[in-house]
Design a binder for these strands. Structure first.
Lengths: 171, 171
DNA sequence: GTCGCGCTTGCATAAATATACAGCCATCAT
DNA sequence: ATGATGGCTGTATATTTATGCAAGCGCGAC
């Protein structure tokens, strides 16, 4: 018996943010593994997975995730057809380690910043996981499509973060 | 004085087929070289080139040509995106110089960072070209819609990058 | 010569998508 | 405690896109 979809209106903001993050992951999974012809179809498929939102929310998601619509339905940025479903399956916010293992390519420190190169479309999940874990050495993150900029208070802390992230890359 | 656009209704079928073929070529040209946000904008741009058709016809053209619509407007099949049509024709990835000439507006250094202001939608192609060329002075880039943040290892290298990009802007 | 078929296109409208407005909640500054 | 701010979302509607229907034309079969 499936879990009852919990509407977004019933949640606090903190849970809403987490819900949105999970929903985006579910969207990547759906779009990467099946044909999604329109927003209503996406809405129905998400509802089966426990995400009950309206077409308006999905329109905003699609815009924020920079998805495209073409002859094959919706697709990930730059035709990326294999989004990662790893975080989705855990039914929990993804850890930095998992995101780095899934999407990370290269880590490099520059002054008080750490630049994380990811696969296309992987920057957002990596940045979100860093935001979620709230490392004291991280002031904030900025994510593009395939690059995350991690801002640290000073160079020493940036070196710590770089070392930690590099260790995750190599595991 | 521009040639008066000849409506499709006034043509014989033989000419109609030829017109359609030419119009498809014009659409590829427009989509490959400029941002086309919606079908009405495409209709107006085609009209300036002598092709007077309605939105309904363009919708069919788009479907038949298997075009996609994404954050950067319409694009050609296989993720051929705006701003990179030049590279497609050259059969080579776009150079930073070409992208800066096409989309760059202003360059400014800040510590170990260089901020590049671009036209709307131009940040992604500029960032992608920088990623592709792998300048040793560039640790990474993060692109918004009209701004690219270029991260350098230190201030001296950022000054070098700023100088180089500024020279490209001025050519 | 007539008829049927296929193609292209416009008109009008259905369907799909984007967005203005407002509500709710958490956070922050005062 | 209060007000401002920001994020998320739904509702209703504006905007954009897709399509049913029909017109016009060329071509081939009869």
């Amino acid at each position: 018996m499936q879990a009852r979809p919990q509407t977004a209106a019933a949640l606090s903001l903190c849970l809403k943010v987490a819900m949105k993050f999970q929903r985006h992951n579910a969207i990547r999974e759906l779009i990467g593994h099946s044909l999604v012809a329109n927003q209503d179809e996406l809405r129905r498929k998400l509802r089966r997975r426990g995400f009950a939102v309206t077409q308006a929310t999905l329109s905003r998601d699609i815009h924020e995730m920079r998805l495209s619509k073409g002859p094959g339905g919706y697709s990930l940025p730059n035709g990326h057809t294999n989004g990662s479903a790893i975080a989705i399956e855990d039914d929990a916010p993804p850890s930095v380690s998992e995101m780095i293992e899934s999407f990370g390519l290269r880590v490099q420190q520059a002054m008080n910043q750490v630049v994380v190169a990811t696969v296309m479309g992987g920057a957002q999940p990596v940045a979100a996981s860093l935001d979620y874990e709230e490392w004291p050495e991280v002031v904030g993150t900025v994510a593009g499509d395939d690059t995350v900029l991690v801002i640290c208070p000073d160079q020493r802390k940036a070196a710590e973060v770089e070392s930690r992230l590099r260790t995750m890359l190599e595991s």
